[in-house]
Design a protein around this nucleic acid. Structure first.
Lengths: 125, 125
DNA sequence: TATATATATGAGCAGACATTCAGATAATAA
DNA sequence: TTATTATCTGAATGTCTGCTCATATATATA
């Protein structure tokens, strides 16, 4: 019996594998909606950059302006501004204006909890 | 008074900004060690990919083999295997062998908590 | 008005990353 | 042994991303 050439055709899948179809079906049934999964991944990804994480960790203590944060993590204010925009869009940080200065703070208690929970995991090993 | 050209020299920073030096110092004093910050970011980043998140979410229900997961998320088994290696290294998943088949499962309850906590944040808006 | 400062934005680039393909291992059965 | 299957690994590749630079916008002051 000749080996069947298994080229993957998009949308199709061969059945010559050890698939537990009932598990795959169950997983599909329970899976998050694609949009929600992406939102969730987006949140984790936002927290998954060392510098953004430094920003969040710092803002957990007290509010800081862009200049402060730039000095703190050692990058340009532009870089910080770009990152803050992303964090703002995800409702992770918020700001208040005092004259020309914008003071940033954490926007959500979930962030705190997420960081501390993750820290537990990391410190466990 | 002529404007001073502000080229950033690595390691140096100008003092002509609205820096709240005491906040920067406090932030430095409280900051996570660089290594720990990177580990934490690594964990979030690992959870910050849509397909890896799908894997974790699925394994939260029941253990699955590589083939199942590949079929479930619609990528090659190779892709899943690469992702599982990363998740294994971070102690997010573990496996048990049954003959030639490796059954993967979540390795840590923190993962569950992290996902559900993050979901709360996402669903809040 | 003009000037200075704090922040934001867009372009461009170098490095990181997720995927696929081809081939290597590991386990099982004939 | 050989053949088959499940998984893993390395290389190649196209895409994403985080940074800097240059510039624009917004606020305050002279």
């Amino acid at each position: 019996m000749a080996t069947i050439k298994k080229k993957r055709i998009p949308g199709e899948q061969c059945n010559c594998r050890c698939i537990h179809q009932e598990r795959v079906d169950a997983a599909h049934g329970q899976a998050l909606a694609s949009r929600e999964n992406d939102q969730l991944a987006g949140l984790f990804k936002a927290m998954g950059d060392p510098n953004r994480l430094r920003i969040l960790w710092a803002l957990d203590r007290e509010e800081m302006c862009v200049c402060d944060l730039a000095r703190f993590i050692g990058v340009t204010e532009s870089a910080v501004s770009h990152q803050l925009r992303l964090l703002r869009q995800l409702h992770l940080v918020a700001n208040r204006r005092k004259g020309p200065i914008l003071y940033y703070r954490l926007d959500d208690d979930h962030v705190r909890s997420l960081i501390h929970l993750a820290l537990e995991h990391v410190r466990e090993e």
